[in-house]
Structure formats: C-alpha cells, structure tokens
Simulated assay, not measured.
Amino acid sequence: MTQLALVAEQFGYVYMDLHMNIEGRYFTMLLLPDRSEHARARAAANWARYPHAADGRSLPPDEPEARELLKARMCTDLGRQYSTRHRVVIALVPALTATLGLWFEFGPENRTAALVLAGSSLFLFSALILLGIAYSRRGSTKYTRQLEAAGFTAVTDRNGRRRYYPPGRHLPGPDSLLFPANELRD
C-alpha cells in the first residue's frame, strides 16, 4: 500500500485516507489529484524521465524517509478508523458468541462446569482484547510522535478522527470538511 501511494504521489496524486472493512478482508485507499504547482511539475518531470512507468518496473526511486512518514500516516489512519469503544464491541461479539457456545455445549446437566469454563474463557477473551488495545495505542503513540516531529499538521475530520497532513501544504479537498484538531466540534 505504501509503495502504491508513493508512486501515485510521484505522478500527481496525494494520499488522503486508508480504510479497512470491518471483516478485515480488504483496504480502500483514497488518492486525489494534487492540484499544487509543485505536484504538477514533479509529475511532468517524472512522466518525462519514466515514460514507461505504467509497466510497474521503471519507476522513480522512493525516499526511505518519505516511505516511513507515509507508513506512519497510513497506520495512524487505520488505527483511528474505529474508536476504542467500537473496537471493544467488535471484538466482544465473537468472544461472547464463543462463550455462549461453550455454555450451551455442556447442557443443563453440567451447568457448574459450563459456568467455570465460560467464565474463564470470557475473562481470557477480555484480557486479550485489552492487550490488543494497549498494543495498538502504543503503536499509535509511536507514529503520532514521528509525524509531529516531522511537522505534520493534526486535523480532525467531521467524523471526529484525528488525521495528519504534510507540513506546508494546502490540504486537498474542501476545507469545510477539515479543521484544526484543537477546535474539535461537538
């Protein structure tokens, strides 16, 4: 994904967002045409230098720093796609289903064993969910620090998601959809 976005940015597009569907089966990346003069000049120069770029082999080299920053943006966007509350609900549904399955598997004659097993499995699932959220927050903190150190601007979209945009760039898209993160609307 990062490679695709880097190549697109070399040829006149700008990365805007990355989403994953709820089943985790596929990603949707939003790339928009970059209308800035700098992007147009870079795209024209790259098309002249790499006229066969469409073959996927003769592409401009990418910069490792740009790759890491774009990866941090993408991971941050994915990590903030759902709030912590939504993630807990999404994770608890299969955990509760498995626990109820264990409960009913033992039947009415072994209710004590079923209660112990279902309770312990629910405890285990809950602990794993909390560990997953803690791990995700640690990664998000790492990427947020990396982006802020590089001068990226924190912006909150109309859905309440905090996003990061490159320094010194006009934000693509209608400005009415974006506003500074410290001015979060109710």
Rank of each mutant, 00 (worst) to 15 (best):
L4I: 14
E9V: 04
E9L: 04
D17H: 10
D17P: 03
D17N: 15
I22H: 11
E23F: 10
R25Q: 11
L30H: 13
L30P: 00
L31P: 02
S36P: 07
A39N: 11
A43W: 12
A43I: 08
A45F: 00
N46G: 03
W47L: 14
W47K: 15
Y50S: 07
P51N: 12
E63V: 09
A66L: 11
M74V: 03
M74N: 06
R80E: 03
Q81M: 06
T84P: 00
H86I: 04
A95D: 06
T97M: 10
A98L: 08
N110D: 14
R111I: 01
R111D: 03
A114T: 02
G119L: 08
S120V: 06
L122P: 01
S126R: 02
I133C: 09
A134P: 01
Y135K: 14
R137D: 02
R137E: 09
R137H: 09
R138T: 02
T141D: 12
K142P: 00
Y143L: 00
T144L: 03
Q146W: 00
A149N: 09
A149R: 15
V155S: 02
V155L: 05
V155D: 02
R162Y: 00
R163S: 01
Y164E: 05
Y165F: 13
P166A: 14
R169Q: 15
L171Q: 12
P172R: 12
G173K: 13
P174T: 05
N182I: 00
L184H: 14
